[in-house]
Structure formats: structure tokens, C-alpha cells
């Protein structure tokens, strides 16, 4: 593995290994909380604690009952249903508006580009509690508080910065001569967009969409303020669970969500590789 040069001193070599150990520890720090959750979700007890039976690895210490609870308890089912009802629509809105705007922003002569960009990205920067409180008051006034549309709009606003960022990133690598070639061959702007630009920025759009989806799917502060009980999402129910009735069911959901994350991440990675191949950027 280690590729030492003949001129490397002993301390260089020692440092090489020490450095790897340090990095290993940091990676451990990153993964540790996630790794701890998974076994705890199979806890046979009703609290967030490793029981003595679990530590002795006895079979009675483990159970699938928290998973069963998740799939049979109507509260969790409603929450899951709502999450899947809100997140995709919010994502569609973010992606639709966001992609258009990102294409607009990538044109060469946009007045006030910097300011516009700053405003469009601001939902990511403004503290969530302020966004939540602001939307709560304002949406109440215009009758959107506690409605499905209100929550979707709020989540779409929060997801937009991610779409803008990822799509503009793919567009900066975009070769303008391709559209010019297409135009010179007689294609109109719309045809050019769908035939040339769209396929190339698609990975950016999808990855932005995934970020927007996860933002909505994992969002709790805004939904607590703007939502209502009939719109409670998974994070809402989890937050309530942490306050009201602490139960390892939350950990079971976490494990399921982590598994989903891994799948999503792999999708993104595959897409990214595809995009680089398509755009002819070779990994250096």
C-alpha cells in the first residue's frame, strides 16, 4: 500500500501511519453514532439503553417488535404516508422552478446576478427557526398555515437552494458550442434545450432533486410550525416521540432511513460517474 520514496526518512514513515490512524479515528467518529443505532433498534426493551441481555448477545435481548410497531402503528403509518405525500411534490416544485432559474442564471448577461443568487440561496442560510416562525405567522394570515399546500410551499422553498447549487454546478462545465452547433443546424431553442442541454444537466437536476427530497423528508422545524396534526410527517412524529413517549421505534425507523440513504447515495454516485463520462470529464 504505502508507496515510500527512497529519500523518505523514518519519521516520514511513522508520520504516514500516525496520520492514517488519526483519519481512521475521525472516520470512526463520523460513523459511530450511526453504527450504534442499528443494534439498539433490535432492542427487546422499551428504552434507549443496551440491556444486559443485549451485551451478552443473548437472543432474548433482541426482537423485531419495534419494526413491527412501525409497520402496524397507525400513527407511524399516517406519518409515513404524509411524508411521501409532501416530499415528492415539494421536490417537483423545487426542481421545476430551480432548474429554470439555474439555466437563466447561467446565461452570460444577467443583471444583478449576484444579488439574485444570494436571495435564491438564502433559505439554506437563514436559521430554520426564523424561517419557520416567519412562515408560521405569514401563512396563518393568508390561510395557508396547517394546510397541505402551505407545507409543500415551505418545503419547496427550503429545497430550492440545493437545486440551484447542483444545477448551476453542472452548467458551469457545460460547453456552449454544443448549443450553438445545434442552433446553427436549425434547431429552435426549445428543441435545443430538450435534445442537448437537458440530457447533460440531468444528473445535476436529479442530484439537486434528491437533496430537495431529503430536505423535505428530514425537515422538522418548519413542519412543526406550518403543519398540523393531520399533516404530521415522519420527523414530526419522531420529534414528538422523543418528547412524549420515548420508544426505540424511532431507532427502527432510523435504521430503515439509513438503509434508504445508502441506496440514494449509491444512486447519486452512479449518476455522477455517468455525468462525468457523458461530459467527457475524465477522472484525473
Amino acid at each position: 500500500m504505502a508507496n515510500f520514496q527512497p529519500y523518505d526518512t523514518k519519521s516520514d514513515k511513522a508520520w504516514y501511519y500516525i496520520f492514517r490512524v488519526i483519519c481512521g479515528l475521525i472516520f470512526f467518529f463520523l460513523m459511530f453514532p450511526i453504527l450504534v443505532i442499528m443494534p439498539l433498534s433490535f432492542n427487546a426493551g422499551n428504552y434507549f439503553t443496551f440491556t444486559p441481555e443485549m451485551l451478552r448477545l443473548e437472543i432474548e435481548g433482541f426482537s423485531l417488535k419495534h419494526y413491527r410497531d412501525f409497520f402496524t402503528n397507525p400513527d407511524w403509518q399516517v406519518a409515513m404516508y404524509n411524508s411521501f405525500r409532501i416530499a415528492p411534490v415539494a421536490t417537483l416544485l423545487s426542481v421545476g422552478f430551480g432548474t429554470l432559474a439555474a439555466i437563466g442564471l447561467s446565461q452570460s448577461h444577467v443583471p444583478f446576478r449576484r444579488t439574485i443568487m444570494a436571495i435564491l440561496i438564502s433559505p439554506m442560510i437563514v436559521p430554520l427557526i426564523l424561517s419557520a416562525a416567519g412562515m408560521y405567522f405569514f401563512y396563518s394570515r393568508i390561510g395557508l398555515q396547517g394546510t397541505y399546500i402551505g407545507v409543500v410551499l415551505a418545503h419547496a422553498a427550503l429545497g430550492i437552494p440545493f437545486v440551484i447549487i447542483t444545477v448551476t454546478a453542472t452548467l458551469t462545465g457545460f460547453d456552449k458550442s454544443l448549443t450553438r452547433a445545434s442552433a446553427s443546424l436549425g434547431a429552435g431553442p426549445i428543441r435545443t434545450f430538450f435534445k442537448i442541454q437537458m440530457p447533460l444537466i440531468l444528473p445535476g437536476v436529479i442530484s439537486g432533486g434528491l437533496f430537495a427530497f431529503i430536505t423535505s423528508f428530514d425537515e422538522v422545524v418548519v413542519v412543526l410550525f406550518v403543519g398540523s396534526a393531520s399533516l404530521k410527517t415522519l420527523p414530526w412524529e419522531m420529534f414528538n416521540g422523543l418528547r412524549e413517549q420515548i420508544s426505540p421505534t424511532i431507532l427502527a425507523i432510523a435504521t430503515i432511513l439509513i438503509t434508504l440513504s445508502v441506496l440514494l447515495l449509491s444512486t447519486i454516485e452512479i449518476l455522477r460517474r455517468r455525468s462525468e463520462r457523458l461530459r467527457g470529464i475524465s477522472p484525473s
Binding site: S140, A229, N240
Partner: peptide, 17 residues
């Protein structure tokens, strides 16, 4: 609904709306 924690705030907001 399980919002009794915020009953006063929510009812106020509903009145505004």
C-alpha cells in the same frame, strides 16, 4: 391532534387567519 402544547399560540394564529 396532539398540539395542546401550543394551544394558545395556534389558536391565536387561527384567529389571525
Amino acid at each position: 391532534d396532539e398540539s395542546s402544547y401550543e394551544a394558545v399560540a395556534k389558536l391565536r394564529a387561527m384567529r389571525e387567519a
